[in-house]
Design a protein around this nucleic acid. Sequence first.
RNA 1: GGCCCUAUCGUCUAACGGUUAGGACAUCGGCUUUUCAAGCCGGUAAUAGGGGUUCGAUUCCCCUUAGGGCUACCA
Length: 444
Amino acid sequence: MTQRVVTRFAPSPTGLLHGGNYRTAVFAYLYAKKTGGEFIVRIEDTDRERSKKEYEDNILETLQWLGLKHDKFYRQSENAPRHQALLKELIAKDLAYVSKEEPKEPGQRAEVIRFRNPKTTLTFTDVIRGPITVDTTDLGDFVIARSETEPVFHFAVVVDDADEGVTHVVRGEDHISNTPRQILIMQALGLPIPTYAHLPLVLGPDRTKLSKRRGAKALTQYRDEGYLPEALINYLALLGWHPEGEQELFSVDELVQAFSLERIQKGSGIFDEVKLKWFNQEYLKRLSNEAFADQLKKYLDLRSPEYAGGRDIPALAPLIKDRAQTLGEAAEMLKNEFDFLDTEPAPTKELLLQGAKAEAADVSKHLEKVIETLSGMGDESFTAEAVKEAVFPYATEVGRSAALWPMRVALSGKEKSPDPFTLAGLLGREKTLARLTKALSVVK
RNA sequence: GGCCCUAUCGUCUAACGGUUAGGACAUCGGCUUUUCAAGCCGGUAAUAGGGGUUCGAUUCCCCUUAGGGCUACCA
């Protein structure tokens, strides 16, 4: 009764996992932590042909990146002796038998092991969906092993779950149909039947189960695009589950606190990258300037060191923090929007006047005034704050658009850029004055 | 085809059987701002259909419809 909860995440290492897979891990993890239980990761590598070490490494690495720490780790293949022993036992008891087959496809065996189906009606209770009743007759004498040494998924899972003490099987809805045959095996083996929680599926935009074949992105791709693990966890947790209240942003600790299997949705949900992006932006915005610069730096180092063109990241990061939805976008901005820092811009007269809402004559008057004001400042004290203090009152007086738009364009050469004071501070006195003077001559 | 699961705005979702059906993302307006973002304010938008049960159904039951899953010697 007071048995400690044990959940598990049991992927097969046959490819890169997508968001739907990792959401299952998130739920299994949250439930284990919520109840003070244990979270197990088991690599299901019984399919020797398709299982690859690199995928296993990727899965473990990604779980770690997400912060889903497991308490125990297993590899299904390592439990092979038990599988074989129990398989033999079933055959000895005539609950399973060696069956002669006619291979229908190349590679199929002439002999496999089938389970003697008792053909009964069986009911199990799913925490999320309630009782589910099935007539197992339809299943026939299904295959449980390719040979005495090669169990098939259904057999291996059941044995492993029992051996590892799994109390709660949290997995995708696509396994509901598999559950009856697994229970049949458990009954034959006299194993305890765990509690089941079949999660609604995560669907792609086409409303079918997320799958690599249909173009679902690997979760690692989001990492590579500059998503934060906190954002991913938060988004994934809220896809198919929602606590009471209207809060949307949750730390992992808060999720653990609030989590319950009962509030998991029954209906499938579509993976919405747009909302995920929003979450990521929220997390990015909440970072301090230093932390954001740090993240960006790390991201850049990982991708390609010269990506940012040797820019001063700590100085520029705050300027793009609120605008970027991902670190990837931030990197793009760094690369594309700050070239004016080292390349002299050549704004046209048209651009200089575009947002000024004023006549050319007035604009040149304002530029002259700004140049005059800034000329009086020293090299040392030429900071963004100081420049603003010097120019702002005048700009306010004559119309901010009329004075500040041309100034900003003169310094950046761009329609969109940080504000003119920041630009001036970044460029320094000499470059600022040179660019303003040049712009003035263009306007005249 | 058979078996199983599901059904609230475009999307994610809230609502002891009694709400003007709420929130978030997206979208569309407006405000603010020196541009772009951000921010603030507001709008559009949903209970699949039909039967019951009930004084009263988004909510409970049945049917239909639609979608999805499984139907492997993959997991």
